[in-house]
Design a protein around this nucleic acid. Structure first.
Lengths: 237, 237
DNA sequence: ATTTTAATGTGTCATAAGTACATATTTATT
DNA sequence: AATAAATATGTACTTATGACACATTAAAAT
């Protein structure tokens, strides 16, 4: 296989016969969703005998004819049917022993999904949403990858308008606060939370109210246009 | 080459004959140093004909028998003789066309070097320090990699005690401020800078003074032990 | 119609952090 | 003894953070 590479430099030639291409490169996805006031992650039953019965992240080898950053979009689309999703690269994991089947280095991404808009086109009944606090161990080093991505998500939500990718287009401030509380896993003070969000100037007052509630409805807001991607998802600024 | 892999899963077997291993993985290093009140980067003349005359970052392919995070240490030691260096992984770059010789995905690291302590064991006279503001273009996508690493460095120096890796063990507050100014490329107010640093509680007053100056000497400080690595470099917390 | 329920919407005070800015002090040099 | 060139330090203003309580609204129940 390595012979089919079009290598030109002395360095690459010299190295190729030393089995340098025995390293495979994959992407792994921490797919976050939000439902029932909980942050969830989409997991699949591992198909490796070493990890039978355990769950793992969705992932795949990177193809030679796609950009690294395109691979996670392809995986998402092909494995879940979800398109137009917010994705961010987090870290690359490459310990020697991390994959039992061989040398695989993996670049981890996190995705943010509005579960209510992106229905799972389940290609297997082994795909399930798991509440983040219920995930105790995962196959491979995927728990480490999950923790790393969760930390990155937590550190970004007050800096950039990314949490909105977990929500529908219209939401009340209560709903927004609940999303933040689910991500951070702490209770927030309502007045202080609203003050902080107001300062960011991310929100558009839609002049609409919640409905079908058995109590006083809240105002509805949307993310300002300048922070949205096509089809209403948020830019990775 | 790919045949020599010990692949066990159906998925990997299926994929291996599709030339999936035609992707090579490398590491590239943005090696920062500080001298003459300037932030510098260690560059080497590119050995590719496509980029003849241009400079590039130090890098190498990752070997199958080393952890990904070990590769940059090996590169640093073998190419410059420098040991015990602060390194941090930043981002992985994997566009299809980024390397003219074939498909190479690269994980970028930045290193922080105290130039005065780590004399270059130059293995080639093509290795040179370049002031960061003088670097206009680089081979491959290395200017993008440099910019990404510089941004990460800038965003970390007020959060974590990493800038000290660019300095000698004993320093005055003026010298420290000059390092921060070089990294951020802005002038800082002396009083406010000292207040901010004091709050961090990173510094140990050494009860020594500068000497051999033609003006009033400043007090000397060192980084507190708890933030140091062996041989006086800073932990990546 | 009135009351109850369950939520929304809002302000103040105290503390901490950020920013702009000027003067007295110390050492070596002349 | 005077000069040069730097160090060391404080205050006033503004902005951000965190703790905390009460009046209001809409729907549902009576």
């Amino acid at each position: 296989m390595a012979k089919s590479l079009q290598l030109k430099t002395a360095e690459l030639e010299k190295i190729s016969h030393l089995d340098y291409f025995n390293i495979a490169l994959s992407v792994d996805l921490v797919i976050f969703g939000y439902e029932d006031k909980e942050l969830k992650v989409l997991l699949i039953k591992s198909d490796l005998e070493e990890f039978s019965g355990m769950y793992s992240l969705l992932g795949d080898l990177v193809r030679p004819d796609e950009d690294l950053d395109s691979a996670p979009y392809r995986v998402l689309l092909s494995r879940t049917g979800m398109d137009d999703v917010f994705l961010e690269q987090v870290h690359t994991f490459g310990s020697i022993g991390r994959h039992p089947s061989g040398r695989v280095i993996t670049t981890a991404y996190y995705a943010l999904i509005d579960i209510r808009h992106h229905q799972l086109q389940v290609d297997s009944n082994e795909l399930h949403w798991h509440a983040i606090n219920d995930i105790k161990k995962l196959a491979f080093d995927h728990k480490l990858i999950l923790n790393t991505c969760l930390e990155q998500l937590r550190s970004q939500i007050m800096e950039k308008p990314v949490a909105f990718n977990l929500m529908q287009d219209k939401f009340s401030l209560r709903e927004l606060q609940e999303v933040y509380e689910a991500i951070l896993d702490i209770k927030l003070d309502r007045r202080n939370f609203r003050k902080k969000i107001a300062v960011k100037d991310w929100l558009q007052d839609l002049n609409e109210m919640e409905s079908n509630l058995s109590h006083r409805p809240g105002k509805l807001y949307g993310l300002k246009k300048q922070f949205k991607r096509k089809s209403s998802k948020v830019l990775a600024i």
